[in-house]
């Protein structure tokens, strides 16, 4: 039977080469029945937003371990808005200091996950975001 599938883009912006976390998340979301578009390492903000648009995803998950999150994440949020994708939820995984977390949330990030965040929590959060979707024009 046809049904609405949750689609999630998992991307690694920036220059660090540690993609194990991103792959673990991708696998966990797949096992939760979601369709995960995995784009690989060293994505620019422009590439991520273009992929989010073409793939019509509900959620963009960013894995950042380089410390450049205060540059990359606001840029991605800005480009998403410019592309008319303000209803796409953005979640961030990585090592994000507390004060930066507050700033990123204020800028529009839906959730931030540090080391040890449980997969069950992430899955439940995404399901919650999609069940209460922004009105589609």
């Amino acid at each position: 039977m046809p049904s609405r599938k949750i689609r999630v883009l998992i991307a690694k912006p920036g220059l660090d080469g540690h993609d194990r976390g991103a792959k673990v998340i991708a696998r966990a979301l797949r096992d939760a029945g979601m369709e995960v578009i995995y784009t690989g390492l060293r994505q620019t903000p422009e590439m991520i937003v273009e992929a989010a648009l073409q793939e019509d995803v509900d959620v963009v998950g960013l894995s950042i371990l380089s410390g450049a999150h205060m540059v990359l994440v606001p840029r991605i949020l800005e480009l998403l808005r410019a592309a008319g994708l303000e209803d796409v939820k953005v979640i961030v995984g990585g090592i994000i200091p507390e004060e930066d977390s507050a700033a990123l949330r204020a800028a529009g990030v839906a959730e931030i996950y540090g080391p040890g965040a449980s997969m069950a929590t992430i899955v439940a959060d995404i399901e919650r975001f999609v069940q209460a979707p922004a009105e589609r024009p």
Binding site: R30, D31, G33, V36, Y38, G40, Q43, T44
Partner: peptide
Amino acid sequence: SPFSGGAILGDRIRMVDLAGDPGIFIRS
């Protein structure tokens, strides 16, 4: 996946150098 109904769509990894071209549209 026949078990969860989920999927990992990874073909874009090999198509990164097509990014930024408005004459190309990729859908997984």
